[in-house]
Amino acid sequence: MDWKMFQALLSGVNKYSTAFGRIWLSVVFVFRVMVYVVAAERVWGDEQKDFDCNTKQPGCPNVCYDYFFPISHIRLWALQLIFVTCPSLLVVMHVAYRDDREKKHQAKYGADAKLYNNTGKKHGGLWWTYLLSLFFKTAIEIVFLYLLHLIYDSFYLPRLVKCDIKPCPNQVDCYIGRPTEKKVFTYFMVGASAFCIVLNVCEIIYLISKRVTRIAHKIKSRDRIIALQHERCKDQDCNNCSLPMARLDLKLPFQVNEEIRASAPNLSSAA
């Protein structure tokens, strides 16, 4: 892959990530990819040549090596890094899809017409894409850690292994090359993977709590507006009902007095 294209992809992932996502990206591509490329490949190298058995029986060292190392650490980590970085690219592809829709919409309805306020803002479908990518990354990390634990007995590499698989004539002793150095790098890569899982879980909790807080704030604001509208309606009803009654109570005595005076003018003059 071209490094410029690779840098563009990384900058896109970093641009649309949260603070936890940026830390995760730094851990993956500094403490895992760089260690993998610079040191881990050299430590393992062609480990089958360093796997030495105390027999010259043809095929015995190959069979024993395949039994104790069904898949190499270095190749398993390469698969893990490939699979764990793919979900992050889904977010970049979703933003690119939004940008394309925005350009087509503006070309059809004018430059002022907008489908999205911000194509990179994590709302709607993009929020779900980002959240699902976090779940996928966490699941991939856990699966590969479990495979490494299952194949290599709790990530442990002994100096000596005993093999009695055919075509070995009897139980033979086989020695692993640079076991301490390989053990250190194994623990380092496992620790970096576990730290990435913690970052993913923290980011999932952060996104969900932020979404729940935003929804609760919207519901509270809506309830407040509805309560204010109810209070205004109640005040308006009270005013409409009380004002005519007050006016009626004030005008009714004067109307009676005027009718009495009109019907009996003598009484009004005598009074």
Rank of each mutant, 00 (worst) to 15 (best):
K234G: 03
Y187D: 04
C163L: 10
N170T: 15
V30R: 02
A271F: 15
I204N: 00
R232T: 07
A271V: 15
L89G: 08
Y130A: 14
I165K: 12
Y206F: 10
K162W: 07
T129W: 06
V33L: 08
V38P: 00
W127P: 03
L76Q: 12
L90P: 01
F155I: 06
S209F: 05
L228Y: 02
V198N: 02
L147K: 01
Y67M: 06
H149F: 00
R214M: 03
E259V: 08
S209D: 05
R42Y: 05
P58C: 04
P179M: 03
C64A: 02
D164L: 02
T213I: 02
I142W: 02
R261E: 08
Y187M: 03
S72R: 11
E141R: 14
I176C: 07
V37F: 15
K183G: 05
F136G: 11
V201E: 05
I225Y: 04
L150R: 14
F144S: 00
S133H: 02
V38M: 14
E259R: 08
I82C: 06
E102N: 05
T213C: 02
P61D: 06
V37I: 14
L267V: 11
A262H: 04
K49N: 04
S268G: 04
F188I: 13
F29N: 13
C86A: 11
V63Q: 13
V30W: 03
V190N: 00
G59R: 04
V190A: 08
K104W: 01
H73C: 01
L248M: 09
S26H: 10
C238H: 14
L228F: 01
T55V: 00
R178F: 01
K251R: 15
M189N: 00
V95E: 00
V37D: 15
I205D: 01
W24P: 03
F188Q: 07
L207D: 09
I71D: 15
L160S: 07
Q80V: 10
A78D: 12
D173F: 03
F144Q: 00
H94G: 01
Q80N: 12
L199I: 04
Y130K: 14
I165D: 03
F135L: 11
V63I: 13
I226N: 14
L90G: 10
C53H: 07
D237A: 12
R75L: 11
W24R: 05
